[in-house]
Lab assay of single mutants.
Amino acid sequence: MQFKLIINGKTLKGEITIEAVDAAEAEKFFKQYANDNGIDGEWTYDDATKTFTVTE
């Protein structure tokens, strides 16, 4: 399945899409990606669109 991350950071904005087995695997990848890029904010997930959003 495809999952999307929308980044609304103070210094980094954009979107990335990955293939993952389930939402838990996608969330783990996205949170590591955000951590690696210094993004720390509020997370939301929309199951209907398979979209995670992080907002700083």
Rank of each mutant, 00 (worst) to 15 (best):
V21I: 05
D36I: 14
E15W: 06
T49Y: 12
T17L: 03
E27C: 03
V54I: 08
K10R: 11
A26P: 00
T17Q: 11
E56H: 14
K10Y: 15
K28N: 10
V21N: 15
L5D: 00
A34I: 15
F29K: 09
G41S: 01
V54W: 01
E42T: 05
T11R: 02
G38E: 06
F30P: 00
I16A: 15
E42Y: 07
T55W: 05
M1E: 03
V54Q: 01
T11M: 07
I16H: 08
A23H: 15
A26D: 00
T53F: 15
L5S: 00
F52G: 00
D22L: 07
T51L: 14
I18K: 14
Q2G: 15
N37C: 04
N8W: 05
T44A: 15
A20C: 02
D40A: 07
F3Q: 00
L5R: 00
I18R: 06
M1D: 15
Q32G: 07
D36K: 11
G14V: 13
K28E: 15
G9R: 08
Q32H: 08
E27I: 14
D40V: 14
K31T: 13
A48Q: 13
A48G: 10
I16Q: 04
K13Q: 14
E27H: 13
T55A: 13
K13V: 10
G41L: 01
G9H: 12
E42N: 14
Q32L: 07
E56T: 03
A48R: 14
L12K: 14
K10I: 10
N8I: 08
G9P: 04
K4G: 14
M1Q: 08
D46N: 15
N35G: 15
D47T: 14
D46A: 13
V54E: 01
G9K: 12
K4D: 06
D22E: 15
D46S: 11
I6Q: 14
V21E: 08
F30N: 01
N37D: 06
G38Q: 09
T55R: 12
T49A: 11
F29M: 13
F3M: 14
M1V: 10
I16R: 09
A23G: 10
V21L: 07
M1I: 14
E27P: 00
M1C: 02
E42Q: 07
A34G: 04
F3D: 00
F52E: 00
F52H: 14
T11N: 08
V21T: 06
A34C: 03
T17M: 10
N37F: 03
K10N: 08
G38V: 06
D22M: 10
K13F: 12
I6E: 05
N35V: 13
A48D: 15
I39L: 08
T11S: 15
D40Q: 02
I39T: 05
K50H: 09
Y33C: 02
F30M: 03
A20P: 03
G14L: 10
A48H: 08
K10V: 09
K4H: 06
A26Y: 00
T49S: 06
D46H: 06
V21R: 05
K10G: 06
I6D: 11
T55F: 05
E27G: 13
E56K: 01
T53I: 07
E15L: 02
E15G: 03
D47R: 03
A34R: 02
I16S: 05
E25N: 15
A26F: 00
F52N: 00
F52M: 09
N37T: 07
G9T: 08
G14P: 13
T11K: 08
A24R: 03
G9F: 03
N37Q: 07
V54H: 15
W43S: 01
M1Y: 11
I16G: 03
A24D: 13
E25V: 10
G41T: 00
F29Y: 03
E25T: 15
L12T: 10
A24N: 10
Q32K: 03
E19R: 15
N35S: 11
E42L: 07
K50G: 11
Y45S: 15
A23I: 05
T53Q: 11
K50Q: 09
A34D: 01
T51D: 07
K28P: 07
K28T: 15
K31E: 08
G41D: 04
I6A: 05
N37V: 09
T53H: 08
A23R: 15
A24S: 15
E42A: 06
G38M: 10
V21A: 05
E42C: 02
K13M: 13
W43A: 01
Y33K: 08
D46T: 05
A34N: 13
V54G: 01
T53W: 09
N35K: 10
K13C: 03
E27Q: 07
K31G: 09
Q32C: 01
I6N: 13
F29N: 11
F29W: 10
N8R: 11
F52Q: 00
D46F: 11
N35F: 12
V21C: 06
I39A: 15
